[in-house]
């Protein structure tokens, strides 16, 4: 579904991604972990070109994402993204947060967009919050609206950039539950997070990044249970991910 080859990115002379190769299969959930500054978020943000990669190739279901002349906006709506800070539009209700791109990008009628928004909000358990404004919702609810906003566009892959890092601990569960449901429904997902428990139960594959490279990858049991690399072991010991 997603093919990444030789992806490189620097910020002001510092190389953040030093040649990433990664394939994400359809319906696969790939969990990305690594120390802060390892390039995990930058990797995600390069995939829909919120950050412009310097070198390398990205393909989504065979279609080039990188390179000149691609229909970037058309591709972006096929790549859902969920942010650490939710980034809901504060001046719009939950429903309008979801319908905006449906109306402007997919050019759906108001009725169609509303129907899709209601379905998406119901899917994240917030059917009753359609008319609420982000400021009146809890962090967990805001993040679920943000997920609904991305889901409603029916993307082929979903990118999660630390989706629970800004949440109070008791609100994390609701968001993870929505992500589990998406996984069950067959969504292709790339998740940057520190929720090791979620990685163990839901991930098909875990990737450990350090200093802009993929250092280790494998099934969750392998990476958490018997990490091969010293850097992975050191990281897991620090964050308490080792069993």
């Amino acid at each position: 579904m997603l093919t990444i080859r030789g992806l490189r990115k620097s910020f002001g002379g510092t190389e953040v991604l030093s040649g990433i190769d990664l394939d994400v299969a359809e319906r696969e959930l790939v969990f990305v972990l690594g120390p802060s500054g390892s390039g995990k978020s930058t990797l995600l943000r390069c995939l829909n070109r919120l950050e412009e990669p310097e070198a390398g190739e990205i393909r989504l279901a065979g279609d080039a994402v990188t390179g000149a002349g691609v229909d970037l906006n058309g591709l972006r709506r096929r790549i859902g993204m969920v942010f650490q800070a939710f980034n809901l539009y504060p001046h719009l209700s939950a429903r309008r947060n979801v319908t905006l791109a449906l109306r402007k990008v997919l050019r759906l009628s108001r009725a169609e967009a509303d129907a899709r928004a209601e379905a998406a909000l119901a899917r994240v358990g917030l059917a009753d919050k359609a008319e609420s404004y982000p400021g009146t919702l809890s962090g967990g609810q805001q993040q679920r609206v943000a997920i609904a906003r991305a889901l409603a566009l029916e993307p082929q892959v979903m990118l999660f950039d630390e989706p629970t890092s800004a949440l109070d601990p008791e609100l994390v569960g609701d968001v993870l539950e929505v992500m589990r449901e998406m996984k069950r429904a067959g969504m292709t997902m790339l998740v940057v997070s520190h929720e090791m428990g979620f990685a163990r139960e839901a991930a098909d594959r875990v990737i450990f990044m350090d200093r802009g490279r993929i250092v280790e990858e494998g099934a969750p049991e392998a990476v958490f249970g018997a990490p091969k690399e010293a850097r992975t072991r050191a990281f897991l010991a620090r964050v308490g991910g080792a069993r």
Partner: peptide
């Protein structure tokens, strides 16, 4: 983040400015 969220859903620069950024 408002720009990024809007652009990530496929909105153009102009749509993002007009519907998300300018109203705020």
């Amino acid at each position: 983040g408002q720009w990024e969220a809007a652009r990530s859903t496929g909105l153009t620069f102009g749509q993002t400015l007009g519907s998300v950024v300018l109203p705020q």
